[in-house]
Amino acid sequence: MTLLFLTLFACQDPFGSDRHTLEGNRIAAIEAQFDGSVVSLRPSLVVDGALWSDATVELAWSWLGPDDNAATWSEAANITGPWSPLAAPQHANRVLLLATFPGDDVAKRAVIDLPSTTLGAMVLVPDALNLHLDSVEAKQLGQDQRLRQETVAWTLQEPGDLLRWTAQIDVAEDARAHWMSTGGTWFELAPTIADLALGTLVVDGDEITQADAIEAGWLTVLVSVTQTGASTWKAADLPVGIDEVGGFVQQRWLPDAQLGLRWVEFVADDAAPMGLRAIDQGPADASEPDGTDSLGCLVTGPFSPDWLAEGRCTRAQIAEHRLQVQVESW
């Protein structure tokens, strides 16, 4: 009711945080799938703004019934640590996740409805827009105007460029993508498409009041896709104004990695988007043992960046180990 008054006269102080920005500690998304028998849940954990951590994020999962209050639930968890695929008990319709991040006293809480279906794999596709912070006008950022903008395949993006991201996934009509990144400004365009300005871009009505390009470096993008009955997420790294040697592992950047299925020894690198760098590489054969036996975390198969993002493994558990990795050009 007060909206009219606010529209005319009132104002509001801006907040220091934005839901699109990957910063601090938070549960950014949870993938929920149901294959007909068991429920699979995968959180995406942001620790100090990154999708990896040297310290363990303590996870505790509980089944919740319709009358259970997720805000005050304090009974013993049904599962601690990473989720194990399980059949849901009859009384449950939701799952509560308590995640205690390193340095935090209070656990962060997330709930998710029990899934009823599965979603396929998701690929993030960036395309370049012929727009730049230096020259873009506010009217070009309207939804209709952006829909008419043509895109070209991305190459090396510079700070201040605008990109279009598409979450390629087979989803239902009610699906929505929720975009987050370590920098830049998001402008959603369609349920699974959004534009990203590589900088801080503030629009006030018909006027652009701030347009500052981000610094060159790596940008991590995380998208969560939710629809009735299932959800999933996907992360990708994008070079901005830099040209490094390396390769992508499931769209996440691994510096110095060579393409193909390789044996790689990981070392910690805070400047790398995954917190890891590849050294001492060699060709690998899929029939060989994958090397995960020596890890202190329950994972199998070639290295996946999601092990870090899900909290299955800390970076410290991966570093100094030699694992199989499938490295690709994107």
């Binding site: 938070r26 549960i27 998304a29 949870i30 929920a32 997720a70 805000a71 209070v106 962060k108 809480r109 997330a110 709930v111 998710i112 409805d113 929505r176 929720h178 969560s224 939710t226 959800s231």
Partner: peptide, 15 residues
């Protein structure tokens, strides 16, 4: 005093 992240709708529910 807090919030619960509803991952099914990507919203935070205030506490």
């Amino acid at each position: 005093v807090g919030s619960v992240f509803d991952a099914s709708s990507d919203r935070w529910i205030p506490v």
